[in-house]
Design a protein around this nucleic acid. Structure first.
Length: 198
DNA sequence: GTTATGATTTACT
DNA sequence: GTAAATCATAACG
């Protein structure tokens, strides 16, 4: 089994769209409360620093919340949405370029019973780690993990065992109607052959 | 200090 | 199809 962590140089590529597309099919791993869980990423969205009003840090908008996006790529950006859901992003690009990829969904590949416990027994497997709020809940990711380095031992990514058999499609992003025309940008990437997408 | 709001989910009608 | 839950952040006074 491949267990090699994806290195920081991958996240620091200059094109956040390339990173978002490449992340589909990779393995997202978490070790929280002594529980190791892994999912295959099936759905991502890119948030770009320029020409994208949906990005929290568009046009270099710097606040306490967005500060983490100005760090070099390869760390986590986790924030609370609607007061309820932690949303997990991967910061990309180099220092002072605030871009990130939202991880929306994954397919369980390890620690499925742990995820089931975290999500509740009544949740069907198909929805265990589908949807950005559900994914973080399944993996035990919370806002405490904001700024966490992705080359550490808590949250990291791995190459899949075998070349991913994914067929990637694009669409507009979800839940960002406030962004006006930028809501139509095709910055959502997902495996169109997977049932584990929202 | 106050107020508006959301990169969502779930349960309703 | 609509609405409620629920709170940290951001914008404003």
């Amino acid at each position: 089994m491949s267990t090699e962590k994806i290195s920081s140089s991958f996240y620091q590529q200059q094109n956040v769209l390339t990173v978002a597309r490449s992340l589909v099919g990779k393995i997202l791993c978490s070790q929280v409360d002594d529980h190791l869980c892994k999912v295959k990423i099936t759905e991502t969205e890119a948030y770009r620093s320029w020409g994208d009003k949906a990005c929290h840090a568009h046009q270099n908008r710097f606040t306490k919340r967005t500060a983490v996006m100005f760090e070099p790529g390869g760390i986590a950006y986790v924030y609370l949405c609607y007061g309820i859901h932690a949303l997990f992003n991967i910061v990309t690009n180099s220092e002072s370029v605030p871009e990130a990829v939202l991880i929306r969904s994954g397919e369980p590949v390890m620690g499925e019973s742990i995820m089931q416990d975290r999500r509740g027994a009544k949740i069907p497997r198909r929805r265990l780690s589908v949807g950005p709020g559900n994914l973080t809940q399944a993996l035990g990711i919370t806002t405490k993990h904001n700024r966490e380095a992705l080359n550490g031992d808590i949250i990291w990514l791995e190459e899949p065992d075998s070349p991913p058999l994914v067929s990637i499609a694009t669409s507009p992003r979800i839940g960002i109607d406030y962004a006006g025309a930028d809501a139509q940008l095709p910055f959502r990437f997902f495996d169109q052959n997977s049932a584990f997408v929202s």
